[in-house]
């Protein structure tokens, strides 16, 4: 055995504190969803809704859309937690495709109808510019919780993991925004809400290596040992 490597082994073992194995990804995803939903529910209660919530709940399309957004958030969160486990099956990263398809599918028929009726004029329908910042605001705590939890894992695929985490946080944030902001035009929902969530997902993915990298995770473990 190389002398330097032997010294590294001894130093690592002598400084090693007991660690609790991470819980299974589905348990971690469940904990994250509970934290996120408590925050989003709190924000929805604090921020007054400027439309009739009960009427919205009576609409089947709204319920399906919200269910699909929630399922997207949960699936993306679960997939993100699987990607930080060495040896985990990478195919889990495809899981969010199913609820995303449902989400897009729930909006596509009415988008098509609006587009055939109004043409390109549909893009000129007045729209609140606050929806994207609102998704960011309501996704803040879910995103922070996600980063903290992901950094306890291994940064094997930083961009993919961060993109999934971003999709999860933005998806959950969007659920709250849909309760706060009225939006009856499906094309606008598709562009601003679904598009906004995808934009945030891409942004998180591109920034993944900044907060999920071996250097900072090894450095953090050395600081704890010290």
């Amino acid at each position: 055995m190389n002398r330097e490597t032997q010294q590294v082994i001894l130093q690592l073992a002598q400084n090693a504190r007991p660690v609790r194995p991470l819980r299974r990804p589905y348990v971690r995803a469940a904990v994250w969803v509970v934290i996120s939903m408590i925050f989003v529910a709190g924000m929805v209660l604090i921020i007054p809704a400027d439309h009739d919530l009960l009427r919205q709940f009576a609409e089947r399309s709204f319920v399906i859309e919200q269910f699909a957004a929630l399922a997207t958030g949960i699936a993306a969160g679960l997939a993100a937690f699987v990607t930080v486990i060495p040896g985990g099956d990478r195919r889990w990263a495809l899981l969010p495709l199913l609820p995303i398809s449902l989400w897009l599918g729930s909006l596509a028929p009415s988008c098509f109808r609006e587009f055939t009726r109004m043409g390109t004029q549909v893009f000129l329908v007045p729209h609140s510019l606050w929806c994207l910042p609102s998704i960011v605001l309501l996704g803040t705590v879910p995103a922070l919780a996600m980063v903290v939890m992901l950094r306890r894992g291994a940064p094997l695929t930083p961009h993919l993991t961060a993109a999934l985490g971003g999709l999860a946080a933005a998806g959950i944030g969007n659920i709250g925004v849909r309760f706060i902001h009225p939006e009856d035009v499906s094309v606008m929902l598709m562009v601003w809400h679904v598009g906004g969530v995808m934009l945030l997902c891409a942004f998180a993915g591109s920034a993944g290596r900044h907060f999920l990298n071996w250097r900072s995770i090894i450095g953090a473990s050395e600081n704890i040992a010290r």
């Binding site: 894992g153 291994a154 995770i217 090894i218 473990s221």
Partner: peptide
């Protein structure tokens, strides 16, 4: 090899 040992150590909690 040492890099991999350090990495293994840093993420040892991920072992189930």
């Amino acid at each position: 090899v040492q890099d991999i040992l350090l990495s293994l150590h840093a993420v040892r909690a991920t072992y189930d």
